[in-house]
Design a binder for these strands. Structure first.
Lengths: 220, 220
DNA sequence: ATAGCCATTTTTGCATTCAAATTGGATTTT
DNA sequence: AAAATCCAATTTGAATGCAAAAATGGCTAT
């Protein structure tokens, strides 16, 4: 198994909640599950710690990082900035074909909205946001976005929405597509910011903070 | 020596050019220099690779990353976005004391400009930019900024400036301080963008691309 | 003389091993 | 009985050793 694969597997475990936030990560256990020795696993953990997904406690092992309200707010704030930047750049560089793809995803999203299929709705939603990032044509930006969104993904794409907020989100997405088609960089940037700000409020209001529920219930 | 220290030492070597861009990094050599064994060094290299400072070639070791023109452009683009965002947030959150500190650094910078002391000028310059980031009060943002600026630091803070460009940069810094004092977030954001855009043009024009000069001259 | 191929040497990647630090419990003391 | 201390056991951190892959140099054949 390649180094990047190990990192990817462990990252997936963290993002899927297979290793819940705040949980200790016993090296030996994970080694068994992944069928590798401690050396490559430890390399992966150090990388994930640099990404902010794992917290290293010197001589005391590693834990899955736990996000506080403040962390969540900070991450959304940066995410707003990155998406707004990507939106601007995308307007300058996006091709008609790329816009068509986004329009298609948008249409699909509307159908899922009609069906009130939240899961599929979120799928399309995420596709759209990622397509805008990709259209910016800046791999550095894509990388940072990936790392930031990974940390808030579960909050962003799992939080239930009130009918009111959902309708608003759909409306905002109409505006996003519109601005893209008009290649209105300033407009798109503003809409994306507002959109993310609303999403953040939603998430924070839902109380998604991964704060410790009495430091884990001891199984017996 | 702690893990973070190893990462820091090697990172410093890369940023200082002690390990030049594109150079191979023989593990055993570095181990001797740092007086550590290969295991912790390899952990550090993987982390630095995730940061984009090192390029890992599976089964073929690691090299110091080399920045192309496109990389430089992308990095500056993202840096613009991050600084602009930080500027906006800073305007909402900065304290009078923090503004005073920045004003002091600005004054010192002006003195060094008067002396045409580029090194000291850049020192103050960097202090100011970092203070704005810090004033945004967003550790996630600070982290990303740190990682992006590290990669362009040598280009950004080493490139010589024409008298014309230098004067323009000073003028822009006046505007930056002014916007901060007025807590004009939109204005600050725009000035910072323009400032960074000019810096980028300067760097690119100076031809700072770390493209291979005939893949290293073979000794002997 | 040059191109291609094979053996040797070096280097990487990983598993194992060893030492140091922490944790939990038992013992002792107040 | 409660608290502090000490000891054993577990777990982490780092070094070494070993196998596999790549680079190097020499050799042969055309």
């Amino acid at each position: 198994m390649l180094h990047e694969e190990v990192v990817g597997r462990v990252r997936a475990m963290l993002l899927d909640g297979e290793i819940p936030p705040g949980a200790r990560i016993p090296e030996r256990d994970l080694c068994e599950r992944l069928q590798i020795s401690r050396t490559p696993l430890r390399e992966a953990l150090k990388v994930l710690a640099a990404e902010g997904l794992v917290q290293l406690l010197p001589n005391r092992g590693s834990r899955a990082a736990r996000l506080t309200d403040k962390d969540m707010r900070d991450l959304f704030e940066v995410c707003q900035g990155l998406e707004a930047l990507a939106g601007e750049l995308a307007c300058e560089r996006i091709t008609d074909a790329e816009i068509a793809d986004i329009a298609a995803a948008h249409a699909a999203m509307l159908r899922h909205y009609g069906d009130r299929d939240l899961l599929q709705y979120y799928r399309c939603n995420r596709t759209i946001h990622e397509a805008i990032i990709a259209a910016a044509g800046n791999p550095v930006l894509s990388g940072l976005y990936e790392s930031v969104t990974a940390r808030i993904r579960r909050a962003r794409y799992v939080t239930p929405m009130t009918p009111r907020r959902w309708a608003l989100a759909v409306q905002e997405h109409e505006a996003i597509l519109n601005a893209l088609q008009r290649r209105d960089s300033v407009g798109l940037s503003h809409i994306l910011r507002a959109h993310l700000r609303h999403k953040r409020d939603e998430v924070l209001q839902a109380g998604f903070a991964e704060t410790e529920p009495a430091e884990q219930a001891r199984a017996s």
